[in-house]
Amino acid sequence: MIIIGEKINGTIPVVKEAIEKRDAAYIADRAIKQTTAGANFIDVCASTAPEHEIETLKWLMDVVQDATDTPLSIDSPNPRVIEAVFKYAQKPGVINSISEEGDKCEVLLPLLEGNTWEVVGLTCDNNGIPNDLETKVNITKTMVEKAAKYGITPDRIHIDPCVMALSTDHNALLNFVEEIRTIKALFPQIHVTGAISNISFGLPIRTLINQTAMSYALQAGMDSAVLDPMNLDMMGTIFAANALLGQDKHCRKYSKAYRTGQIGSIKKDLRKP
Score class of each variant (00 low, 15 high):
residue 160 D to Q: 12
residue 140 T to P: 00
residue 131 N to V: 08
residue 219 Q to E: 14
residue 202 G to E: 00
residue 111 L to D: 06
residue 147 A to K: 06
residue 219 Q to S: 14
residue 18 A to M: 07
residue 200 S to M: 04
residue 218 L to P: 06
residue 237 T to R: 10
residue 192 V to W: 02
residue 66 D to W: 05
residue 93 G to H: 03
residue 102 G to T: 06
residue 190 I to F: 00
residue 161 P to Y: 00
residue 135 T to F: 09
residue 201 F to D: 01
residue 75 D to V: 12
residue 89 A to T: 02
residue 40 N to P: 09
residue 209 I to S: 05
residue 57 L to M: 10
residue 210 N to W: 04
residue 22 R to Q: 15
residue 149 K to P: 07
residue 177 V to Q: 07
residue 253 K to N: 14
residue 265 S to C: 11
residue 82 I to W: 00
residue 129 I to Y: 04
residue 174 L to Y: 07
residue 207 T to K: 15
residue 118 E to M: 15
residue 203 L to V: 10
residue 246 G to P: 03
residue 141 K to W: 00
residue 77 P to R: 11
residue 103 D to W: 04
residue 206 R to I: 06
residue 200 S to K: 02
residue 85 V to Q: 04
residue 42 I to H: 01
residue 64 V to F: 04
residue 256 K to M: 11
residue 31 A to T: 11
residue 198 N to P: 11
residue 209 I to T: 15
residue 147 A to C: 13
residue 18 A to P: 09
residue 264 G to W: 09
residue 217 A to V: 02
residue 42 I to N: 00
residue 98 I to W: 04
residue 243 A to G: 08
residue 214 M to G: 01
residue 174 L to Q: 13
residue 54 I to F: 05
residue 234 M to E: 13
residue 87 K to V: 12
residue 192 V to I: 15
residue 41 F to H: 10
residue 117 W to N: 10
residue 92 P to V: 02
residue 167 S to P: 11
residue 162 C to S: 14
residue 213 A to G: 03
residue 105 C to D: 10
residue 262 Q to G: 12
residue 163 V to A: 11
residue 42 I to Q: 01
residue 15 V to A: 08
residue 99 S to K: 10
residue 17 E to A: 14
residue 110 P to G: 02
residue 225 A to E: 03
residue 246 G to T: 05
residue 15 V to F: 09
residue 115 N to F: 12
residue 63 V to M: 07
residue 130 P to T: 06
residue 96 N to H: 06
residue 85 V to L: 06
residue 30 R to K: 15
residue 70 T to C: 15
residue 158 H to N: 13
residue 271 R to H: 08
residue 60 L to F: 05
residue 117 W to H: 10
residue 144 V to G: 04
residue 33 K to Y: 03
residue 76 S to I: 13
residue 158 H to Q: 07
residue 190 I to V: 15
residue 37 A to H: 06
residue 89 A to V: 05
residue 107 V to N: 04
residue 263 I to L: 08
residue 181 R to M: 15
residue 227 L to S: 01
residue 235 M to D: 05
residue 249 K to G: 00
residue 197 S to R: 02
residue 176 F to W: 04
residue 179 E to R: 12
residue 58 K to S: 14
residue 117 W to I: 11
residue 42 I to A: 02
residue 129 I to S: 03
residue 94 V to H: 00
residue 262 Q to W: 09
residue 238 I to P: 01
residue 266 I to L: 15
residue 64 V to I: 09
residue 207 T to S: 14
residue 208 L to D: 08
residue 45 C to Q: 10
residue 75 D to Y: 11
residue 171 N to W: 13
residue 254 Y to H: 13
residue 6 E to K: 03
residue 130 P to I: 07
residue 69 D to T: 15
residue 229 P to K: 06
residue 215 S to H: 09
residue 245 L to C: 07
residue 165 A to T: 14
